[in-house]
Design a protein around this nucleic acid. Structure first.
Lengths: 212, 212
DNA sequence: AGGGTCGCGTAGACACTGTCTACTCGCTGG
DNA sequence: CCAGCGAGTAGACAGTGTCTACGCGACCCT
């Protein structure tokens, strides 16, 4: 019987995920050992196996929480009214903001070597993890289309998404700060302002300049 | 690749890196166990420690090879003559091409959790690994500046780099194919063409349309 | 030539990991 | 009442990275 109650019917299962979410946000994906999670949840190392057939399955469930939270953030700013261009900008800031605030979680979400891959899926638990980004992308392409570029909105949205993702990734790695600011950044430009200029440049590039 | 090593002063050190490069190219970063590398090099598991104080140091040396090869590719296409816009396009294709052909290596190069971080460096072996991208970025910003955008070339180049990096990353993850093509892609657009459209869109966005 | 030293690599131990399997409880249903 | 089952425990196993002690061969220096 697949218990239909998705809520808190199985307490340990949820507790394990909770512990994992806390752990990944504070210490990053490397801290997500199976035994460590079990330890912090107060159970023995074999207990998680009752709910997750493998370590990756547990990590996938944790990552799913991350996608859910990112989805909430995106949906929040997508609900705001305003000129479509500003909506896309808000989306972009939400995406990059999530990547920088929830560093560890964002890292996990795109570490596909740690997550469940094709063959092995929970199957009954929900859609495949890789498809978690699809609804988010749909929101983006919709807002981009409303900006009314002549080109196909799908391609533009995809390129913009890639740009945001790349900014988040390289910024976290520190390469962009290094490349733009030099080894010793000039004091006039704190990192936050650099990042903002970068984001504006990306938005201008894909959506056209503000006054267009 | 030419192992016509003039010095071969420290044969094992180079051999370990060679083995690592081969391994990461075929099986990805997860296959780069310290003991596995030693095994394939025909030495015991304690031997690498003579040359690399820690596992990460060895992986960093392997990744350095990757940055070197990427640098060669970039330098090759950067040497070609032609309109500046075409030079930037060639650079972009080289970057993404490297990421897709040398998947495992590219993955390793940006897995900073596996690589040496700030404190611990080989120090005498060369510049810090994180700075390996700086000269490559300089080439890009130079070519971008030659395209003569009104804006600051540094910011444009950084945004473009991030875009290329994001395309490479998300394409490898499969998200872009999923987002653009849908679950079952329309037969008219094979993946290669999708990728090309994406790349062109990014170049057009950051450099202005072709006829400008 | 003999003896000490040192680079280079081996081998074992240690703590730790993820997975697998046998086992023990406590509860519930017939 | 007791068989069965869900849920969690505990131990074993192979494998990992790091650390330490130990050989071994070549070299240099009186």
């Amino acid at each position: 019987m697949t218990s239909a109650n998705p809520a808190s019917d199985n307490s340990l299962r949820e507790r394990l995920i909770d512990v994992g979410v806390d752990l990944v946000t504070t210490d990053g994906p490397d801290a997500l050992g199976l035994r460590e999670i079990a330890r912090r949840a107060g159970v023995s190392h074999g207990a998680p196996r009752r709910y997750f057939p493998t370590h990756r399955a547990l990590l996938s469930a944790i990552a799913r929480r991350g996608f859910a939270e990112l989805g909430e953030r995106i949906a929040d700013v997508a609900g705001a009214s305003g000129p479509p261009r500003e909506q896309v900008a808000a989306l972009a800031r939400a995406y990059v903001g999530f990547a920088l605030e929830r560093r560890g979680m964002f890292e996990l979400m795109f570490r596909h070597d740690l997550l469940n891959s094709e063959g092995e899926q929970e199957a009954a638990d929900g859609p495949r993890l890789r498809e978690s980004t699809v609804p988010l992308f749909r929101m983006l392409v919709e807002r981009v289309a409303r900006c009314g570029g002549s080109e196909e909105a799908g391609v533009t949205a995809a390129a913009l998404w890639a740009n945001l993702h790349g900014i988040a990734q390289l910024w976290r790695w520190g390469s962009l700060q290094l490349a733009m600011g030099g080894p010793a950044a000039d004091g006039g430009a704190p990192d936050a302002e650099l990042l903002d200029r970068l984001l504006s440049a990306a938005l201008d590039a894909h959506l056209g300049p503000v006054t267009a």
